[in-house]
């Protein structure tokens, strides 16, 4: 759901950039004050994984494809939505500046959708579902699905404000496609979480119920 520059007028893009910058500053403060230094290399590897997985579009029927976004995954593994904002912002900068994947004037919009909204929905969705299901994989999958669908619906609203899509048809179309793409998000998030739990349970900042 990387929005290109042509989809949103510059003035609106600037407003989203200002909002995104507030969250970027908060994310940088989170890294500086809350994240332990031993985790820096692990966050960097997660960023590499997110970048690679985002390049891997998988078909989801109806002539459409989609890929992992990764906001939920990063937020769940590192235990903060701000981790997702930190990682996704930097990944989006590389994608936008070098590869034209997502625009420049709209980069703030993409950071808000995938980093901020994806991160917060992923993190709080996970902990909400965890308190009900008591299963980390089901919770991660459910939260990741929501962290794909809800940012896509937000993008549809932003694009309706921009006059690019009509509101209701845009939300229906974005919603249907990303409900399917969200299954990719759910599956990969649960699998990667499983790999991390089995190889390095200490990276997770919360008990998983697994013996460590």
């Amino acid at each position: 759901m990387h929005i290109p520059d042509s989809f949103i007028p510059i003035t609106q893009g600037a407003v989203y950039w200002v909002i995104a910058l507030v969250f970027i500053v908060l994310a940088l403060r989170w890294v500086k004050n809350e994240m332990s230094e031993e985790k820096v290399p692990l966050v960097a590897v997660l960023a590499a994984g997110v970048f690679a997985l985002q390049a891997f579009n998988l078909p989801v029927t109806m002539g459409t494809s989609g890929h992992l976004v990764g906001g939920a995954l990063v937020a769940i593994v590192l235990g903060s939505p701000f981790a997702a904002i930190f990682v996704l912002s930097l990944v989006l900068i590389v994608q936008g500046v070098l590869f034209g994947d997502g625009g420049i004037t709209v980069m703030g919009t993409n950071i808000i959708n995938m980093g901020v909204i994806g991160g917060f929905v992923g993190y709080y969705g996970y902990h909400g579902l965890l308190s009900v299901t008591r299963n980390i994989y089901a919770s991660a999958a459910g939260a990741a699905w929501l962290a794909c669908l809800i940012p896509a619906l937000c993008a549809a609203i932003e694009l309706a404000i921009a006059g690019t899509f009509p509101l209701v048809p845009g939300m229906i179309s974005m919603g249907i496609y990303h409900a399917l793409i969200g299954l990719i998000e759910a599956g990969i998030t649960a699998v990667v979480l499983g790999l991390i739990v089995n190889s390095r349970p200490d990276i997770l900042d919360h008990p998983t119920g697994a013996p460590s």
Binding site: M1, N57, P59, V60, G63, S65, M174, H178
Partner: peptide, 10 residues
């Protein structure tokens, strides 16, 4: 990777 348009382009 699939070359089909993504959800937004679709």
């Amino acid at each position: 990777a699939s070359g089909d348009p993504d959800g937004l382009d679709s």
